[in-house]
Amino acid sequence: MQYEGVLTKMQTEAGSPIQYYLVFENSFLNVNQLLGKDLEINFMGFQCLNCGKKKKIYRQGFCYDCFYSSAAAGDWIMRPELSTAHLGIADRDLEYETRVQVQPHIVYLAASSDMKVGVTRKTQVPTRWIDQGASWATPLVEVPNRYLAGITEVALKDHFSDKINWKKMLLNEVNEIDLIARRNEVRSLLPAEVAPYFESTQEKLYTLDYPVLQYPQKLGSSLNLSKTPIFNGKLMGVKGQYLLFEDGTVFNVRSYEGFVVQINV
């Protein structure tokens, strides 16, 4: 069968295992059903996720112009401590920024390789952890806006990483960490204005189960569609936003948002 469309990050459905979907304008694939099968991925062109024009993708699925003009690509996306909508101050579009920033956010601890700290909107639990390939995760505090989550993350980054070792994550080399114990230890490191939210945040450990037939013994190349516009391989698993192939090749779907592809199964 043949599918064609613009790549966006895979949609997911929590379960055991997690269900993954590649969604195009007129069709979709349940990626779990492709495990153990040969896939061909053909790069066809570009389409900006914001303006829809067939312009080269610059970052995050946006063309150059949209990346520097769209409210969905503001600096506060990657650096939540820069959020200002709760003060009524706009970055690029106050209406959009208020809608996204002024809602419950979770600061969390997760284990994808080693322990990391991160921020997500409450509505993105557990999607955010799935996208990062976390094996376990636990909410630390739930706060009413993105700014408070951001300053908490900044305070904790002095003690814990906010990065993922993606190679260890894909090899399933995840350190056994008692996240609940670490959660209680972290309590004393919270900023004063955030500390009261610790007691009201439910203590809960999430365990995530990925659809993987076999993890690679070692990683091969990371598929670059610009350099390898036609790729064939047997799909052996999905973790985070990566497709894992039998020969050790990995493909980060999210890195190629805005790329138009044809997939043959």
Rank of each mutant, 00 (worst) to 15 (best):
L213M: 08
I263Q: 02
V23H: 04
C63I: 07
A90I: 00
F28S: 15
Y210R: 12
Y21P: 03
L34F: 14
R182A: 06
F259N: 07
E25A: 14
T228S: 03
I230M: 05
A137K: 08
E81V: 04
L94C: 11
Q33W: 11
E185H: 11
K167E: 13
A111G: 09
K239P: 02
W166K: 12
T8H: 00
D162I: 08
R182S: 03
G233Y: 03
K168Q: 09
L35M: 15
T84M: 05
Y108F: 09
P104D: 07
I164F: 07
S255W: 00
Q103I: 04
R187L: 04
I230S: 02
D93H: 08
K9S: 01
I57R: 04
L35A: 13
K167D: 14
Q19S: 09
A85V: 04
G36L: 02
G61Y: 10
A71E: 14
K163I: 10
L7C: 05
F46S: 10
S16M: 10
G5M: 13
P104F: 06
L82N: 07
P211M: 15
Y20H: 06
S221I: 06
I263P: 05
Y147Q: 03
C63M: 11
G220V: 05
Y21L: 10
A14I: 14
R182H: 09
R187F: 13
V117P: 11
P139S: 12
Q132C: 14
D158R: 01
K157I: 06
V250S: 10
V102Y: 07
V154L: 04
V23T: 10
Q202T: 07
F231Q: 02
S188Q: 08
N224Q: 12
I41M: 02
F231V: 13
V250T: 11
V6H: 06
D38A: 10
P126V: 04
E176R: 03
Q217H: 06
V141W: 14
Q214W: 01
R128E: 02
F43H: 07
Q19M: 08
N184A: 10
D91R: 00
H105T: 06
G36P: 01
T201I: 09
R182M: 08
F62V: 07
L189C: 12
V174F: 11
D93Y: 08
P104V: 06
L109E: 09
I263G: 11
L94Q: 03
E193Y: 04
H159D: 09
K54Y: 11
A85N: 02
M10P: 00
N224E: 08
G237P: 02
Y206K: 01
T127R: 08
A85M: 03
N175Q: 11
Y96M: 03
R59Q: 09
V23W: 04
I18W: 15
T120Y: 00
N175S: 05
K116L: 12
Y108T: 12
L35E: 12
K218M: 02
L189R: 06
Y242E: 01
